[in-house]
């Protein structure tokens, strides 16, 4: 009680949860990115991967308290990434006009079962992953901050 060197230990859950979180949160984030990038090859895609990415940040927030998670990704940054995803998605759609019509797959199709194949589909998956991940995290932050603000 007299002099604790680490201040962040006082907030959040117990030491066990924090230690496990420190090991797993990076793997969860990596798995989300994998699901987004391989959406055109295996089950998954932008929506599921984006939710997993958001959950890795929420996991961090549940274990360490909201300050640590806000340091990694603040609410304005989450809002920015959400809008960025929407802009990338709509620009991919509009760029289809280069070849003729909206949502034209204007890039090279490539070889099947390769990571860089299927033209615009992986790019659109990445945009949706950005959007869903950042958006879900922003809404949760809004709910958490509102509750804390209402108590004071």
């Amino acid at each position: 009680m007299s002099n604790k060197p680490i201040k962040s230990n006082e907030k959040g859950m117990t030491l066990i949860v924090k230690t496990i979180t420190r090991f797993t949160v990076g793997l969860i984030l990596l798995f989300g990115i994998y699901i987004v990038l391989h959406g055109h090859l295996s089950p998954g895609g932008g929506f599921a991967g984006g939710v997993i990415i958001a959950l890795s940040f929420i996991h961090l927030m549940l274990a360490f308290g909201k300050e640590v998670a806000l340091k990694k990704l603040s609410q304005s940054m989450a809002s920015f990434f959400e809008s960025l995803g929407a802009i990338i998605f709509i620009s991919i759609a509009v760029l289809g006009f280069l070849g003729g019509y909206f949502f034209l797959n204007f890039l090279n199709k490539g070889e099947a079962f390769q990571l860089f194949s299927a033209g615009i589909i992986p790019l659109a998956n990445i945009a949706i992953g950005f959007k869903v991940g950042a958006g879900l995290f922003a809404v949760l932050l809004g709910l958490v901050l509102l509750k804390i603000g209402g108590k004071e």
Partner: peptide, 28 residues
């Protein structure tokens, strides 16, 4: 026609991309 081996993705992001655009707009 799309080069994507996951047919679900090829439908939601190529054949029926307008649906996905609407979904993304609703989410936004």
């Amino acid at each position: 026609r799309t080069g994507a081996t996951n047919l679900v993705t090829s439908v939601i992001l190529d054949f029926r991309a307008y649906d996905t655009l609407g979904e993304v707009t609703v989410l936004f």
